[in-house]
Lab assay of single mutants.
Amino acid sequence: MFYPNSPQTSPQLTQIPYGQQYAMMQRQIQQPYHPFATTEPQARLYPYHYQGPIQQEQGGFITQQSTAASPQYVQMRVTPVDQSIMSGYPNQTANGSSSSSFNYNIHPQQQQQQQQQQQQLRHHAMPVGSVPLQDDRYRKQLIVNYLAPDVTSTDLHELFSRFGELDGARIIYDKQTNMSKGYGFVYFCHAEDAKEAVERMSGYEFHGKWLKVGYSTNPLNIVPSNSSPYVHAGSRGAAG
């Protein structure tokens, strides 16, 4: 039997160049792979992502010199942007860049009308829970959420009447099932009393439920100042 490094198959040491006398086997001759043993700084910083320098080929596509990437890492192929796409944008300079302001050559009167329309939209648009300043009635009506099913309009009136005089209180019921929808409205005579009720009743436990109280901004629920107070009856038909 002959071994790869046996004296019968191995040459004389004098015939082997210096430095390879003890590297006779194939696994010894093959050098191990060192990912950080390279002179390129990109490979030292990113050993798993770097795959060699990027070269520009004919046709405008950018390719990489090395083989496919590892399945664990996804390499994105980048193509140059066609400058003709950006030619339609206004205020574009000769080098292809555009300024931040756009001039669509709008007539001054049209621009003024658009600004007025935007101001009107901001004036009428009102986020949930906010209180408008032009109508004091919005500051007097509250919406009470997360009410228990057994709470009546009379219970709601008695709960909030300790903060001040009320114009009314009612629970909203479903017309088909005649069941409470879980929320109601309270109408105060003074805005200061309503503000105190919002601050003190939010998070209050009532009939096993934690109440959420806020201003009601729905104009359909506003009680006119010259109208008669609501009837605080315990029956659902009268309260709904």
Rank of each mutant, 00 (worst) to 15 (best):
D167H: 04
G203T: 03
S101R: 12
V223H: 04
H34R: 13
I143W: 01
Q114H: 11
N105C: 05
R139Q: 06
N145I: 01
N95L: 05
Q12W: 02
V81N: 10
L166A: 00
H207M: 12
I85E: 07
E158Y: 14
M25I: 10
Q176S: 07
Q56H: 11
F160N: 00
R27Q: 04
L166K: 01
L156P: 01
L121Q: 05
G59Q: 08
P229S: 07
D193A: 07
Q21F: 02
R200L: 10
A194E: 02
Q51A: 08
P90K: 13
V74L: 09
A68M: 08
Q55L: 03
D135W: 04
L133E: 07
Y187L: 00
P132S: 08
V151S: 00
Q118H: 13
T154V: 05
Y183Q: 01
Q112W: 10
G237L: 08
S227D: 05
I143H: 01
R137S: 07
Q51C: 05
A233V: 04
Q31S: 09
F2W: 09
G52R: 14
Q112C: 09
F185S: 02
L156G: 00
S101T: 11
L147V: 07
T63K: 14
Q51H: 11
Y204R: 14
L220W: 01
D155C: 14
S130E: 08
D174C: 14
R27S: 04
S227H: 06
I62P: 14
F206Q: 01
Y230E: 03
G208M: 10
N221L: 14
R170V: 01
E192R: 14
F163I: 04
L13Q: 11
Q12N: 08
P35N: 04
Y73S: 15
Y18Q: 09
L220C: 06
M179Y: 15
P132G: 06
S10G: 10
A23I: 02
V74N: 15
N105K: 12
N103P: 11
P7A: 07
I171C: 06
G59V: 05
R77I: 02
K209P: 00
F102L: 10
P127A: 06
L45F: 15
S216P: 02
P35V: 04
D174Q: 12
L147N: 02
Y187R: 01
F206S: 01
M179T: 13
A191E: 13
N218Q: 01
A43F: 04
H34I: 07
S98D: 09
Q109H: 08
F185E: 00
F163G: 01
A148F: 02
T67F: 05
M24P: 13
A238H: 10
P229F: 12
P41Q: 14
M86L: 09
N145K: 01
A233S: 09
A197H: 00
Y89F: 06
Y187G: 01
F188Y: 04
F206W: 13
V186W: 01
A37I: 04
Q117N: 09
S6E: 07
T154H: 05
S100P: 11
F185N: 00
L159W: 01
F102C: 11
L211E: 00
S100I: 04
T63Y: 06
A148I: 01
L121A: 06
Q120H: 11
I85C: 11
G168Y: 01
Y33A: 13
L142Q: 00
Q65M: 03
G60S: 09
F206H: 06
F163N: 02
Q21L: 02
L166N: 01
V74M: 10
A125L: 11
T67W: 03
G240W: 13
Y204M: 13
Y146N: 02
A69G: 06
E158K: 11
P7R: 14
Y3F: 06
Y3A: 11
I29Q: 06
G52K: 15
S225T: 13
Q75A: 08
A233M: 13
V186P: 00
S87W: 03
A68E: 04
H34P: 08
N5Y: 04
Q176C: 11
T67G: 13
Q72Y: 07
W210N: 01
Q112Y: 12
Q114W: 13
S130I: 06
Q56L: 04
L166T: 03
D82N: 14
S228D: 07
E165Y: 15
A238D: 04
Q112A: 10
Y18H: 13
E196K: 13
N145A: 02
M76H: 14
I85P: 11
S70F: 05
D174K: 03
P71G: 05
S161R: 12
D155I: 12
P4S: 08
Q42L: 06
Q21D: 08
G164D: 00
Q112D: 05
I106E: 04
S98H: 15
K140V: 02
R44T: 03
R44C: 03
N218E: 00
S235F: 09
L159F: 01
H124T: 08
H124I: 11
A191C: 13
R236E: 03
S153R: 15
P132Y: 15
L133F: 15
V223I: 07
S153Y: 15
V198R: 11
H107F: 08
A197G: 03
A238V: 05
H157R: 12
G52S: 09
P90Y: 10
P32R: 08
Q111V: 12
